[in-house]
Design a protein around this nucleic acid. Structure first.
Lengths: 217, 217
DNA sequence: AGGATAGGATAGTGCTCCTATCCTAAAGGC
DNA sequence: GCCTTTAGGATAGGAGCACTATCCTATCCT
């Protein structure tokens, strides 16, 4: 199929496809001749991925490029998914914890206490240095600084649910037919769970408010 | 204090303060004379609120206005917080479920099954029509459509945690000195929990991946 | 031969959140 | 009384982002 057909089938305008090509989100098609290029199902898949990351997850072009460039670079699936995590994690509007220098608050090399230690031990997760671990520590520190209370009970419930989901996610992403699909599954899944929590919280708050102000049924 | 001092103390540029005044996010100061206006601690508080909603929660000017206009309209605290929920809930990039017409998929007036029924009954939450409830139903339906698996176990863990947190939140917002502070507490809190979950999920996924690919310690 | 096509370059659009400039009328300090 | 400062209104400019539109040339297919 060539550009026009790719556009028609994907629902993405030809102009946008050209834009994505320019930005390196989409691999150039196979150049049949100098002015004819052929695109395949992989390109269709990639466009669907881009659409999902843009419209559902809300990533910017640069962030999408950060992900797909790793994928297109032939990196192993695990590494690509780690990149997805890294990008989606710093999705706090405008990029809260860039952390791209090195030394954060302390070197934490000497096995000192970190905010996330309790959770990690509770779940028996490997106590390794990782972006996710750093992000968690930063988040817990931030919440404490903002005076948002967090009981062990809550962290237990959260991490328990996440532990369960992570296992399922691993199966899903492992079962994904293509790398692009695995990326999409991972990114969309993370976002959806986060959104689900938001909605449950809202309903819980509404329920408590009703109980409190309308006579605690 | 007058505009310049308000700017210095809040760290918001005078130009931005004027902008917020124009946009109706900030109440005009008390006009001492025709060219002198006095601002008080309330204005400082409001600016802090605006900053939080912009930079942490990532709301747009229009969304912030939707919240503060209700607050400034003298609505009761409960109603203001409901507005906060409404705004933060449809924060799915670009506003997934606008729902601002009326009839969604079915009228669900006849007590038909809705996706969120199980959770509501599990928690004993009041089974009332509400924005939060609609948002939850929509989210569950969306996740099912996307093929994201959700076990009862997970919903149990999520909703249990949310139930606990909602109780705490209610205390926090009830204890807030000002309405603006209550708004800030609620909005920032919702966002922070959602972000925390994201980070825990990432760590859980990383842990499972390590187990799976590096010899399941 | 001639209309269609790929892909490159370039500029424009629409949106949002400011930021800067200018203006007028009026204070307040000296 | 004069001169700087100020409020607040109007208006324009600017930066970032994700496109979108136009034009171009070298092809290709028929």
């Amino acid at each position: 199929m060539q550009l026009n057909e790719l556009s028609a089938r994907s629902g993405v305008s030809a102009a946008s496809i050209k834009y994505y090509l320019r930005e390196g989100l989409l691999q150039p098609g196979e150049a049949v001749t100098a002015t004819r290029a052929r695109y395949d199902a992989g390109h269709l898949r990639r466009l669907e991925l881009i659409q999902s990351l843009r419209q559902i997850v809300g990533l910017g072009i640069e962030q999408i490029r950060a992900i797909v460039s790793v994928a297109d670079g032939g990196a192993p699936r695990l590494e690509v998914l780690a990149t997805v995590q890294r990008v989606v994690l710093r999705l706090g509007p405008h990029g809260e914890g860039t952390n791209h220098g090195g030394g954060s608050r302390d070197t934490h090399g000497a096995g000192h206490a970190r905010p996330g230690d309790a959770v990690v031990q509770l779940r028996g997760w490997p106590d390794e240095e990782s972006d996710a671990r750093n992000a968690l520590d930063a988040q817990l520190a931030l919440m404490e600084r903002l005076g948002i209370p967090l009981s062990t009970e809550i962290l237990d419930a959260y991490s328990g649910a996440m532990d369960t989901i992570a296992g399922l996610d691993l199966q899903l992403t492992a079962a994904a037919a293509s790398l692009d699909q695995a990326i999409q599954t991972a990114a969309v899944g993370m976002h959806m769970h986060s959104q689900l929590l938001l909605k449950l919280l809202a309903l819980a708050q509404a329920s408590h408010a009703i109980w409190r102000f309308e006579g605690r049924a």
